[in-house]
Lab assay of single mutants.
Amino acid sequence: MTSCHIAEEHIQKVAIFGGTHGNELTGVFLVKHWLENGAEIQRTGLEVKPFITNPRAVKKCTRYIDCDLNRIFDLENLGKKMSEDLPYEVRRAQEINHLFGPKDSEDSYDIIFDLHNTTSNMGCTLILEDSRNNFLIQMFHYIKTSLAPLPCYVYLIEHPSLKYATTRSIAKYPVGIEVGPQPQGVLRADILDQMRKMIKHALDFIHHFNEGKEFPPCAIEVYKIIEKVDYPRDENGEIAAIIHPNLQDQDWKPLHPGDPMFLTLDGKTIPLGGDCTVYPVFVNEAAYYEKKEAFAKTTKLTLNAKSIRCCLH
């Protein structure tokens, strides 16, 4: 018999989150649709729960009410004593943790798909938090293969000092899905179709896995975050240069030392320094102006996964 890495157990509980950011409308629209008619997301033997994560922000069509829901799922915020004085999103995070967690427990949901849009030209993107997770690498390989020839990129946010504390991190297997470009507060049919297909293929993978299909060893190309880059700023902290036209919409493309990065209003080009080629992502993302992030630098690498098969009882 072929030796293989056996994944822990079959997958039982899956959640699909929309509206973690209330103005990213593809996930909101799909989740609302699936709450009314969820036939397309159901798979035999699998509990799939669509869920609106930040209903107040969705109602106002804004990213958040008090603070970013997708950055506060750490033990400090989840452990705060519940009171009306807490920011709305912290209270909501505790409610979500109660419903789908608790985080880092045996009772937490197996998989959470968190649906997002970006204003950046990132196409279909899967966000991975753990480079050693054979199950998710296999799932992402399946999704990428199923979507081809449509490109699907994998963004690895594993980093020693950049801690995200994402909404989906309460699950055993957290999956971020990011599709763009799409303006905030807008629905685009092409973007919706791409996100819908990503979810379909992900659920198909889980179904095949649960039925005992063995997935042979595989490898995927990923883009691992190195650092986030702020806009150049003046002495008052105001933005002093904008994304250069040569960099705009060039997510995932190589940016070499000396290539144009920013452009000042008086026409001066600010190039990339250093001696390493990087791959920019979230270029000129609207939501990241407040976070002082013009783009993120990534490096390209390959992740390998062992063969996996479900432990059938």
Rank of each mutant, 00 (worst) to 15 (best):
Lys200Pro: 05
Phe282Asn: 12
Asp104Gln: 12
Leu150Trp: 10
Thr26Pro: 11
Phe113Val: 06
His33Ala: 09
Leu247His: 04
Arg233Lys: 11
Leu272Ser: 09
Asn210Trp: 03
Ile6Cys: 10
Asp66Trp: 08
Asp251Asn: 12
Asp259Gly: 01
Cys311Arg: 12
Ser105Gln: 12
Leu147Lys: 06
Arg168Pro: 09
Leu255Trp: 01
Ile112Ser: 05
Glu214Asp: 08
Tyr164Gln: 15
Lys253Arg: 10
Asn121Ser: 08
Lys224Met: 00
Ala202Cys: 00
Glu9Arg: 15
Gln138Lys: 04
Tyr64Trp: 13
Cys67Gly: 08
Pro50Ala: 07
Ile127Thr: 07
Leu35Asn: 09
His208Ile: 15
Thr166Ser: 14
Pro271Thr: 14
Ile199Gly: 01
His244Ile: 05
Ala39Phe: 10
Ile16Gln: 01
Asn97Ser: 13
Ser83Ala: 13
Asp234Glu: 07
Pro232Phe: 02
Asn210Ala: 05
Ile16Glu: 01
Ala286Glu: 08
Gly123Ala: 05
Ile6Gln: 15
Pro217His: 04
Thr44Leu: 08
Phe140His: 02
Glu211Gly: 12
Pro149Gln: 00
Leu147Ile: 15
Ala219Ile: 07
Ser146Gly: 09
Tyr155Gly: 07
Pro245Ala: 01
Glu178Gln: 15
Arg168Phe: 07
Arg92Phe: 04
Glu106Leu: 13
Lys60Asn: 12
Val28Ser: 15
Leu272Gly: 02
Met139Leu: 07
Phe262Gly: 02
Leu312Val: 15
Ile16Met: 02
Ser131Phe: 06
Ala171Ile: 04
Lys60Cys: 11
Asp114Phe: 00
Ile270Leu: 09
Cys61Lys: 13
Phe262Leu: 03
Val48Phe: 05
Thr20Met: 04
Lys291Asp: 10
Val31Trp: 03
Asp74Met: 11
His141Thr: 04
Met195Val: 11
Tyr153Lys: 14
His207Phe: 10
Asn236Pro: 04
Pro232Trp: 05
His141Ala: 06
Ala39Thr: 12
Thr62Phe: 09
Lys172His: 07
Tyr109Cys: 07
Leu192Ala: 11
Thr2Lys: 14
Asn121Leu: 02
Lys32Leu: 00
Gly176Lys: 15
Asp251Gly: 05
Lys200Asn: 12
Ala93Tyr: 12
Lys80Leu: 14
Gly274Asn: 03
Glu227Leu: 04
Phe29Thr: 15
Asp68Val: 01
Lys291Tyr: 07
Pro257Arg: 00
Ala15Met: 02
Ala296Asn: 08
Asp107Phe: 11
Leu78Val: 12
Ile111Thr: 01
Ala241Met: 00
Lys224Gln: 10
His141Lys: 08
Asn246Ala: 13
Leu69Gly: 06
Ala241Ile: 07
Lys200Ile: 11
Phe282His: 15
Met195Thr: 13
Val229Ile: 08
Pro245Met: 04
Pro216Arg: 05
Pro217Gly: 07
Ile96Lys: 06
Pro254Arg: 01
Pro232Thr: 03
His159Met: 09
Ile41Trp: 04
Val278Asn: 03
Ser131Arg: 11
Tyr231Lys: 00
Ile239Tyr: 01
Glu227Gly: 11
Cys67Arg: 12
Glu214Leu: 12
Phe205Met: 01
Val58Tyr: 08
Pro181Asn: 05
Ser83Val: 13
Asp85Met: 13
Asn236His: 12
Glu24Asp: 15
Leu147Thr: 00
Leu255Thr: 01
Lys268Asn: 10
Arg43Ile: 00
Asp204Thr: 00
Asp249Asn: 07
Ile225Gly: 12
Lys13Cys: 01
Ile270Lys: 00
Lys213Glu: 12
Pro271Leu: 09
Glu9Thr: 11
Ile111Gln: 05
Glu235Met: 09
Tyr289Glu: 15
Pro50His: 03
Asn117Arg: 03
Pro260Ser: 07
Gly237Met: 03
Leu303Thr: 05
Ile52Ala: 00
Glu238Gly: 09
Asp85Ser: 14
Asp259Lys: 00
Tyr109Met: 06
Lys103Gln: 11
Cys152Leu: 09
Lys49Ser: 10
Pro50Val: 04
Thr298Phe: 05
Leu30Met: 07
Gly180Ala: 00
Ala148Leu: 11
Gly45Ile: 04
Gly18Ala: 11
Asp259Trp: 00
Val179Met: 03
Cys311Ser: 15
His313Arg: 15
Lys59Arg: 13
Gly79Pro: 11
Ser146Ala: 14
Val281Pro: 05
Arg233His: 07
Val154Ser: 01
Asn284His: 05
Val58Gly: 05
Phe205Tyr: 01
Thr20Gly: 06
Glu24Lys: 00
Val154Ala: 04
Pro216Ile: 00
Asn37Tyr: 07
Glu129Ile: 01
Gly273Gln: 13
Glu211Leu: 12
Val90Thr: 11
Ser120Ile: 02
Lys213Ile: 14
Ser108Glu: 10
Asn133Lys: 00
Lys81Ala: 14
Met261Leu: 09
Ser108Asp: 08
Thr125Pro: 03
Tyr223Gly: 02
Arg132Lys: 14
Asp104Tyr: 14
His5Gly: 14
Ile270Glu: 02
Lys200Thr: 11
Gly267Thr: 02
Phe17Tyr: 06
Lys306Ile: 07
Pro160Lys: 11
Val28Glu: 06
Ile111Met: 07
Gly180Gln: 04
Gln184Cys: 11
Leu25Val: 12
Ile41Glu: 04
Leu126Ser: 05
Arg309Cys: 10
Ser3His: 11
Asn70Glu: 12
Phe282Cys: 10
Thr125His: 07
Pro50Leu: 02
Gly267Phe: 01
Val31Lys: 05
Ser169Asp: 07
Glu40Tyr: 02
Ile41Gln: 03
His141Glu: 02
Met139Trp: 01
Arg63Ile: 01
Ile226Thr: 11
Thr167Ser: 13
Asn134Ala: 12
Tyr88Glu: 10
Glu158Ala: 05
Asp74Pro: 11
Thr299Met: 14
Thr118Trp: 00
Ala15His: 00
Leu203Ala: 03
Met198Pro: 04
Asp68His: 05
Lys144Glu: 02
His201Tyr: 13
Asn134Ser: 13
Arg92Ala: 10
Cys4Ser: 15
Gly101Ser: 07
Leu312Trp: 13
Thr302Lys: 09
Asn134Pro: 12
Asp251Thr: 02
Thr277Gly: 00
Gln182Glu: 05
His256Arg: 12
Arg196Ala: 02
Leu203Ile: 07
Asn133Arg: 04
Glu227Ser: 07
Leu69Thr: 06
Ile127Glu: 01
Gly212Glu: 01
His21Gly: 07
Leu69Lys: 06
Pro151Arg: 07
Asn77Pro: 11
Leu192Met: 13
Ile65Tyr: 07
Ala57Leu: 05
Ala15Ile: 03
Gly38Trp: 09
Phe51Pro: 05
Ile16Ala: 04
Val14Pro: 01
Glu290Cys: 09
Tyr64Asn: 09
Asp249Leu: 00
His98Tyr: 13
Val154Lys: 05
Ile191Ser: 01
